[in-house]
Write a protein that binds this DNA or RNA. Sequence first.
DNA 1: ACGAGTACTTGTTATTTGCAAGTTTTTTGG
DNA 2: CCAAAAAACTTGCAAATAACAAGTACTCGT
Lengths: 140, 140
Amino acid sequence: MTKRTTEDWYGCPIRYGATIFGDNWCLLILRDLMFKGAKHYADFLNAGEGISTNILASRLTTLEAEGIVEKTQDPEHGKRYIYVLTDKGLGLLPAMLEIINWAEMWDEQTEVPTEFVEELRKGRSSLVKKITSQLKSSRF
Amino acid sequence: MTKRTTEDWYGCPIRYGATIFGDNWCLLILRDLMFKGAKHYADFLNAGEGISTNILASRLTTLEAEGIVEKTQDPEHGKRYIYVLTDKGLGLLPAMLEIINWAEMWDEQTEVPTEFVEELRKGRSSLVKKITSQLKSSRF
DNA sequence: ACGAGTACTTGTTATTTGCAAGTTTTTTGG
DNA sequence: CCAAAAAACTTGCAAATAACAAGTACTCGT
């Protein structure tokens, strides 16, 4: 997460994308949101990646500020919030899937369920639609 | 660029992908390699992003170590090196294109040539092939 | 032979991260 | 109804990383 002066900030899509994608923790938070059903602060904290609580808080703040996640109160529980992907956040799904595909191809250690890989390679767009609608429905 | 202990390193594709994608500067270096015809150290240094020379050197080292770029001597110039994407590096092109597409959709400031966007949306795979073959031929 | 070009390295300061502990509400269990 | 656990943070501090500035070591063109 590099700070940037207003000067030469605008115009480049990759530079813009790097605001989110160019950060290790943002990527892992997005993964948890997209593929692991994470909703609460504690879900991200205990995702097994060892993120510090102050870093998590700051990342959630920037993701919210960028309009990628939305924070709402949990109706079932007063002092609990639910984090969900906005439409803009869901728009990052194709990029995430491409990273998964790449890692699966080039990293020996990577383990992706074969049915997932097959579905991904058979047709990206239908998988995107499927996951998107699942996530949208869960945000009721 | 977070250091990681061997413990829980393996398995997750996003965690692996974050090694590269989860870093602002790596992303911008990849952009320059893929879309700006950057080849030499100075090309990255003067790309207008204000990367420090020590950071650039360290990133090129990791990208090389990860097998994403290859460093060879420039035949036309003794003390000059050429950096080119390996096949593994080229494999990241689809993910980069998805980021471009996303930024173009959600960031007002982003400016991508309309013909590029059209080509991208008409058919990803043919654009991937086109750029890939261009980059491969230039590495002779 | 000299200055400009190329790819760095080294040092020093500023910023960010990681770790540990503490705070504030809210729910749950007896 | 009261105490303890849960949930989502905040704060403080040491350690790691990044940014800035300068210097080095070859090389090429003139």
